[in-house]
């Protein structure tokens, strides 16, 4: 049961809400309240555009607990337009081959359920080939 954690992370997971540093303007994801660039305090919320490109990727065949029913699936490091590198699943690939540099956009999807089918549903960001 990890309900408090899922509840606490909902904004960053649903909508890619991170932070912007008021001192050096660097955009931060995930939010950590201290700027990794200048070390200053940074807790101003910033909603990312959700646009980026595939920096690297791999396909998971042996999935960790909670994700077995989705395998095989592709996980990517996504370089967001605003700078940060985010790890996330790719989705809606259909028959689209994944390539480094491929433009992607954020979508909110069902990540998994907490425990079995009685558990809460956990939603969060994934990325798909850009449609726009």
């Amino acid at each position: 049961m990890e309900i408090p954690r899922h509840w606490r992370l909902k904004q960053q997971r649903y909508s890619l809400v991170g932070e912007i540093c008021p001192h050096c303007q660097v955009k931060i994801f995930p939010p950590r309240d201290v700027c990794p660039n200048c070390g200053g305090e940074a807790n101003t919320p910033y909603t990312f555009s959700g646009r980026g490109e595939v920096y690297s990727y791999t396909t998971i065949y042996e999935a960790p607990a909670g994700f077995e029913d989705k395998a095989p699936y592709t996980v990517a490091l996504v370089k967001l337009d605003e700078g940060p590198l985010v790890t996330a699943q790719l989705t809606d690939l259909g028959d689209t081959p994944v390539e480094i540099g491929m433009p992607v956009e954020m979508v909110t999807r069902r990540l998994r359920q907490d425990g079995d089918e009685r558990g809460m549903l956990i939603y969060g960001y994934k990325f798909r080939p850009a449609m726009n």
Binding site: D69, K70, D92, T108, R109, R110, L111, L121
Partner: peptide, 13 residues
């Protein structure tokens, strides 16, 4: 819908 889609995710988009 795909494996990770439901009424909530589709409504959000």
């Amino acid at each position: 819908p795909g494996l990770d889609e439901d009424v909530i995710t589709m409504s959000i988009e």
